[in-house]
């Protein structure tokens, strides 16, 4: 369990984190959302005791301010930009393995797990960004910590690597461990997170299950629905009548917005009136929409 109570961190006049409070239960995966500068990384550094802050953070019941070392030993951390000493990959992992007092065999094991076994004699400077991300993840896994804190873990990865990476994180979560990760991608949030914490200007503005996020922020799913021309007028009035916002027409289609994520609602409405639907496409809200929503919400 990680408990964040009323945490504030200022750099000069700027409040990078402003009275943030939330809890992460054991076995839970929580996604930290927010635009750049919203305070996610700063908050993570506070959890790790790298920064001074006011308020209180407890990791696994240990107060970070009092026992930073004990708290950190419970956490595996993956920084946004993993940076390493210029040593061989295996030596780097061994070094951190010694610091965390884990078995001799463990470094090879975690490298294998993240698929770096064949690169273990390469120098860190020879690794690609993605490989470094994985190396950092391997180090985070070393002591099988209760908590994983991942700062944009997939930002340097291509599509294939990302899928693999997400699966690794999911495995870990399913072993009953707790995960906090910051992300820019909603699909990752949907795939991994039990809850999403949205930050803006240092404050926690939303703390919800991911699927309720859209609703909470009043975001609709956008749909493009095509009907035959002769039904166009009928369709428009039917949709409006059902309380569905019609943003406009393009060609044979309507651009509509559905609240609450019920994408079938406009289709059902049209079909109940025997208006033939030629086709449709669904456009899920993007992170940008969410962040815009947060902005709207905030203003």
């Amino acid at each position: 369990m990680i408990e964040i109570k009323n945490v504030t961190k200022s750099f000069g006049k700027l409040k990078a984190v402003d009275s943030a409070s939330f809890r992460v239960e054991k076995g839970e995966a929580v996604s930290l959302l927010g635009s750049n500068g919203a305070g996610k990384s700063t908050l993570i550094k506070c959890i790790l005791g790298l920064l001074d802050y006011s308020g209180d953070i407890a990791v696994g019941g240990i107060r970070v301010k009092d026992h930073p070392k004990e708290a950190k030993s419970l956490i595996g951390y993956l920084p946004q930009e993993p940076l390493f000493y210029d040593m061989r990959t295996l030596d780097i992992v061994r070094f951190f393995a010694r610091l965390r007092n884990v078995d001799e065999g463990r470094p090879a094991e975690v490298l294998d797990k993240v698929g770096l076994a064949e690169h273990s004699s390469k120098y860190a400077s020879e690794l690609s960004g993605g490989m470094r991300q994985r190396l950092s993840f391997a180090i985070a896994l070393l002591s099988e910590p209760m908590f994983l804190i991942l700062d944009e873990p997939t930002s340097n990865l291509d599509a294939h690597a990302r899928a693999e990476f997400l699966r690794l994180i999911k495995d870990y979560k399913e072993n009953g461990k707790t995960v906090i990760f910051s992300s820019h991608r909603l699909d990752e949030v949907d795939y991994l997170a039990d809850r999403a914490v949205l930050m803006k200007d240092g404050r926690v503005v939303v703390d919800e299950e991911p699927h309720r996020l859209r609703q909470t922020l009043g975001l609709g799913t956008k749909m493009n629905i095509a009907v035959p021309d002769e039904y166009a007028a009928l369709a428009a009035s039917a949709l409006s009548g059902a309380g569905i916002i019609v943003h406009g027409r393009n060609g044979r289609g309507f651009l509509v917005e559905v609240k609450g994520g019920d994408s079938l609602h406009p289709l059902r409405e049209l079909m109940s009136r025997d208006i033939p639907v030629l086709g449709f496409s669904v456009e899920e809200p993007t992170m940008e929409n969410i962040l815009e929503g947060a902005d709207r919400d905030g203003n």
Partner: peptide, 12 residues
């Protein structure tokens, strides 16, 4: 930047 990463591990 390695200093910060090092300090994220259980060392003082």
């Amino acid at each position: 930047g390695t200093l910060q990463y090092l300090l994220s591990h259980p060392v003082t």
